[in-house]
Amino acid sequence: MLAYDWIEMLLNPTRSMLGFIIGLLSTAFLQSACSSVPETQRTDQRDPYEGANRGAFAFNMELDTHVLEPAANAYKRTIPKTGQHAIANHLNWTGLPATTLNSTLQGRYENAGVAFLHFAVNGLTLGLAELTEDPKAVNSQDFGQTLAHLNVPEGNFLMVPFLGPNTSRSLTGKVADTMTNPMSFLKAGEAAQTMQSLRPTVAAVSSRAKMSKALDDIKYNSLDPYARTRSLYYQSRAGRINAVVGKPNNNQTNDDQFESFFEDPS
């Protein structure tokens, strides 16, 4: 749920002090993640690093409470709806090259073409205004889905500080996808550079504001927010993977779980 695209800072820690701190924290997290929980003590078999993951989740929750939630509330209060739409449009636009590339790698050439067209046309306003007729025509694709298409195993569940829930495969995909962000190779002067450096923060606040009701429900009403986040992540990810490769690998579909429920008479 806390899928913040701050990985760009992780890739280039010299960009800012914050990036450096994030880099350090992530390294510390990855080192602590090496100690896995025995199978019998796991609350989910896909989560061998549950102890470290819960630690990272607690950190993300603190960050959310003290930084993101107030920032998202202020964002909703102060930025007019049209401005919020423009920001969301721009963030979607920066993901279009990744969709073009990944759709091509998956052999979904029609989607690749549509994504490229949307990127080119909306690029006239850096994606701030939707100049194309139907933005829903593009089915966004990431490198994690491409890896699934290539039968790369899903890997373990990882809760990453600042980035939120991932699997090893989807985290690898996120790293690859940040390299296709158009703002990282656009040399259009100071304005573009400022947009690029602000992008991760804006993306985090904007997505927090968009999902405020759902996130607040997890934070304040669930019995185990970590387990709920993990379940929501896996199901949502399975839906996306399912759209690319058919049945998600290493995972029971929702239908399978209901079938076994009806087979069990107890």
Partner: peptide, 8 residues
């Protein structure tokens, strides 16, 4: 899945 996590 949340319930199972709590019980385990």
């Amino acid at each position: 899945q949340e319930n199972i996590a709590i019980i385990r």
